[in-house]
């Protein structure tokens, strides 16, 4: 049997199959090919973590924030009452909202974490203080920019850091599967990097910025 006669036999066989059989089969093959093509397209977006740099703005979803500088302090009155057993680590951050509604300061505190502060994983900021008046930032209003200090306490047993390892977490605005309300969900790291520390200053009590 030659190749051409074999091909003619295949074609003849296919012609005898009813349309109602090969039509849906062909449709299924086309749809499967489309799905496979979608899976094979390289995705860009969630999962890629940008390099964090001091002075460079990061879009976390709900916030536009810039880590300006890092400080290590003996204490920060009213926030971290340091003693010989602990020191205060602070990031000065400027932040504004992307949304048109009030957001809680707790979400901002949860968006910036320090890695290597102790023996556990990234630690979100326990204190967020407005530099202008020393108040706790418990709510951010749309259209305003806030300059804040995000403050952590670290045991003095750890060596004094020369840089802070920072991880910024982002969120996506979508409808909740529970109640259908639009919420900032799906916490995902969006930026990470180190910020050099301004060394401990003998005038830290007078100038905590």
């Amino acid at each position: 049997m030659t190749a051409s006669s074999g091909a003619r036999r295949v074609v003849r066989t296919l012609r005898e199959i009813p349309f109602l059989v090969w039509g849906p089969l062909l449709l299924a093959v086309v749809l499967a090919a489309g799905v496979a093509a979608g899976e094979l397209v390289p995705r860009v977006g969630p999962g890629r973590i940008a390099e964090l740099e001091a002075g460079v703005e990061v879009d976390t979803g709900p916030f536009l924030l810039t880590v300006e500088r890092a400080r290590v302090l003996d204490e920060l009155p009213g926030v971290a009452e340091g003693d010989d057993t602990a020191r205060a680590l602070a990031l000065v951050v400027t932040v504004s909202l992307t949304s048109d509604r009030t957001l809680s300061g707790a979400m901002l505190a949860d968006s910036v974490a320090l890695r290597g502060i102790d023996d556990d994983g990234p630690v979100p900021a326990p204190n967020v203080v407005v530099l202008a008046d020393g108040s706790h930032l418990d709510a951010l209003q749309p259209g305003l920019e806030y300059e804040v200090a995000m403050v952590w306490e670290q045991s003095a047993e750890h060596p004094e850091p020369v840089e802070l390892d920072v991880e910024v977490t982002g969120r996506t605005l979508r409808d909740s599967a529970i109640d259908g309300a639009a919420q900032w969900l799906d916490r995902t790291p969006v930026a990470a990097g180190t910020v050099p520390v301004t060394p401990m200053d003998s005038q830290a009590g007078a100038d905590n910025r």
Binding site: D100, R101, T102, S135, H136, D138, A139, P142
Partner: peptide, 18 residues
């Protein structure tokens, strides 16, 4: 309680700063 501006932005009250 909230203030709503002419562009529809909503500023909630009920926090320590507001």
């Amino acid at each position: 309680v909230a203030i709503r501006d002419a562009e529809g932005r909503v500023y909630r009250a009920g926090s320590r700063r507001n």
